[in-house]
Amino acid sequence: MIRSLRVRLMLAAAMLAVIFMLATLPALQGAYSLALEGAIEQRLASDVTTLISAARVEDGHLMMPLMLPGEQFNLPDSRLLGYIYDRNGQLVWRSRATEDENINYHPRYDGTGNEFAKIKEPNGEEFFVYDVEIKLLGGRNAAFSIVALQPVREYQVIIAGLREKLYLGFGAALLVLLILLWAGLTWGLRALKGLSQELDQVEAGSRESLSEEHPRELLRLTGSLNRLLLSEREQRIRYRDSLGDLAHSLKTPLAVLQGVSETIAKRPEDLEQARILQSQIERMSQQIDYQLQRASLRKSGLVRHHVSL
């Protein structure tokens, strides 16, 4: 069982901070993933627009220039892939980077306009696909599906890097937060430490009551303790006075017994009884003197420890 209030509060705050961060991390990752997917969709849409602007229809056939305005379509090792299909799903054009790729994608010319999706190949590789259907090309009737693809692994690398940075950032933030919490709890619990010091002084007898220079939340406690100390002090005074009265009231009977003992001691046959009576009188006198001395102590304070002699 943890007996330190500061440690308890620190552990509770640390648990809440960890739970909050663990709940926040997936939300941040999801928001960033959606934003990144939106950026990829816009980029692929721009790349498809580049293909559309470069395409021409002559005698019912699609004509594409050898060098496209978008440089990435002209590079053989580019990760941006471009395809053009007719309305029957037949491939009529592909970019240079697709020569070493075998993408199993079959567009559906169903009038949906454009579509952004994610596909997975049999070899396990995934691609982002942006498919746009066109009916007019250069002012002439045309029916083509223009497709731009980008590998998902680049997106996954970015997400993995972001996740690592988030973990590192949240870990550093958690460490700073714990340090600030420890400092704040130390400052906030200073009032309890001051109260504990005053209680030690009361127990040692160096002060009679607690001060009122404490936070409002502790004033009720300090007021109750002061009333308790006052009640204990008054009870101790009554106890001292009662002991004093009792001791003084016993002094006279003891003096009478002392005289009787001395009278009895003059008779030889009662000498033993007189000796026993005298020892008991002395013992009672010692007890009365001890109680009088104990009652006269005014600055004894509260007893903290008992040590057997």
Rank of each mutant, 00 (worst) to 15 (best):
A173F: 13
V157S: 03
L175I: 11
A183F: 15
L149W: 02
F144T: 01
A173L: 14
G161K: 14
G161P: 00
I179T: 10
W182N: 12
E164N: 08
L168W: 15
A160F: 05
F170W: 07
R153K: 04
L175F: 09
G161V: 06
N141I: 04
P151T: 12
L137E: 07
I179A: 11
L136E: 14
L168R: 15
L178K: 01
L149Y: 02
Y167K: 09
T186D: 03
L178N: 01
L137K: 14
L174C: 09
Q156P: 00
I146M: 08
L178I: 11
L178P: 01
Q156W: 00
A142P: 01
V157Q: 07
V176D: 04
G139L: 06
Y155N: 07
L174T: 11
F170Y: 13
A172K: 13
L166V: 03
Q156E: 07
L185N: 02
L185Y: 07
A173T: 09
G184I: 01
L185M: 07
V157Y: 05
L175V: 10
Q156K: 05
P151Y: 12
E164S: 07
Y155P: 04
L166F: 11
L166D: 06
A183W: 14
G138K: 11
T186K: 02
G169N: 10
L174E: 11
P151H: 13
G139R: 15
R140V: 12
L177Q: 05
V152F: 08
R153V: 06
A183K: 12
L149D: 01
L168P: 03
F170C: 03
L181V: 14
A172S: 12
Q150E: 10
G139K: 15
